[in-house]
Amino acid sequence: MKTQKIGAWIAVLFGASYFIIPLIATFEFSLRMRRGEYSFDAYRSVFSDVQFRESFSYSIVMAILTIVFGILLVVPTAYWVRLRLPQMRPFVEFITLMPLVIPAIVIVFGYLRLYNSSSFIPFTGSARGTDLLLMFSFMTLSLPYMYRSVDTAMRTIDVATLTEAAQSLGASWPTIMFKCIFPNVMSGVLSGAFITFAIVIGEFTMPSLLNRPAFGPYLQLIGANRAYEPPALAIIAFAITWASMALLQLVSRFSKSAPSKP
């Protein structure tokens, strides 16, 4: 029994080291900008770069919008499929899997062909339109993960009976959706949101080919021309992503355990 436990710990440490050692190495390298001593010069250089602030803010805003609209699309869809259209589930699952098998570059060329400035829906005719198109493309890319996370969370609750219980108490569809179903699939929504956030922050192909100032293309540009800033950027991106995840966890845990006030 004890040997098994030690074996399990060794396996965990080995797995963790696969992830942690490169991270430590990246961090260590990011501190070596000043010759002969460790310093945060690379970070200073990154933070003082206006392009970094702009591209990172842009990606954060895009990530938030993608998460919000992704939730508004996926949660009602998964709910309705479970409640009224269970026979459509394999079809919907197939559709949500498409972004995994169609490369992003193919999708974006499809978009450019369909939504160019001379098409019926000229998304790319303006900066805001292209931003909207980019957000939709991010939603498409994150669809397999968001849908699965939400659908798995819905499997843990009896959607049909909860809906009927709420209806018998006089609830309308929006009330059922936002007060009875949504809070109970929050764990799945958050998981989907984390993955969506990570995808949006790191995505290069879509914003690059749509020519939008996102963090992915900026990272590529810096990586191609500088030595110490790219690892510093990678560490910053990791730190911000982790902080966001921790914050979301904290918020969800707090809201779930909040007692009522009779």
């Binding site: 009976t161 009927e164 219980a165 018998s168 108490l169 009875c180 809070p183 009522s260 009779p262």
Partner: peptide, 29 residues
């Protein structure tokens, strides 16, 4: 519609809203 009939229903599977306390469940309607 079911939400307009003013009918109370109790289900085999309880169907309490998991995200709400007892107070909030009873207060829902």
């Amino acid at each position: 519609k079911p939400n307009q009939r003013n009918i109370g229903m109790v289900f085999q599977a309880y169907a309490l809203f998991p995200n709400m306390t007892v107070h909030d469940n009873v207060a829902f309607g």
